[in-house]
Nucleic acid binder design. Sequence first.
DNA 1: TCAATGATTAGC
DNA 2: CTAATCATTGAT
Length: 188
Amino acid sequence: MAPDLIGCHLVSRNGKDDLLWGVIVETEAYSQLEPACHGFSRRTSSNETLFGEPGNFYIYRTYGIYHCINVVTDKPEWASGVLLRAIALPNEQERVAAGPGLLARRFGLDITHDRRPVSVENGLWLTSRSSEENVQEIVNTTRIGITKAKDLPWRWYLQKSRSVSKRAKGDRKPCPEKAWRPSIGNGP
DNA sequence: TCAATGATTAGC
DNA sequence: CTAATCATTGAT
């Protein structure tokens, strides 16, 4: 799911003529089976969404000040999701959505949006990838900003995008192509 | 109840 | 490199 979401759009409708959208250019995968995932430890009220229905947004507060946006990807009881790390806005002049915290801030999303469905009705949804050529430029590396399960190659980003998160560029070597598809499962 | 930490970012 | 800042977690 994580590489598949690269090139897709995140769209937010705040009013009749108020549409905010951008191209997802950086994602990370998290699975219940590995300790970096919020669903690795026992099910609690705070990670409940991750254990719930797929197709919902899992949004949590991090480091006291920011929020991170995830898409729940597995069936109930199978906690796994995709973290949206960076989005390229159309006509982008600045790095406004480069990094998960900045992304959430730019789209005005916080804990009150947690567990809402990915849907037009909800005013927040995803679209299909605009073109196949984007896929050719996807880079696969290990994940960022975690201390556990550092070696899993579960981060993807568009090479050409200026909007990947700050630590994303330079400091990580691309992983072998065969690592694109996780070798371990996405659930128990 | 308390101390430590974190899927972050900005600033030096 | 560290501060900011607070929900969550695990130990006491």
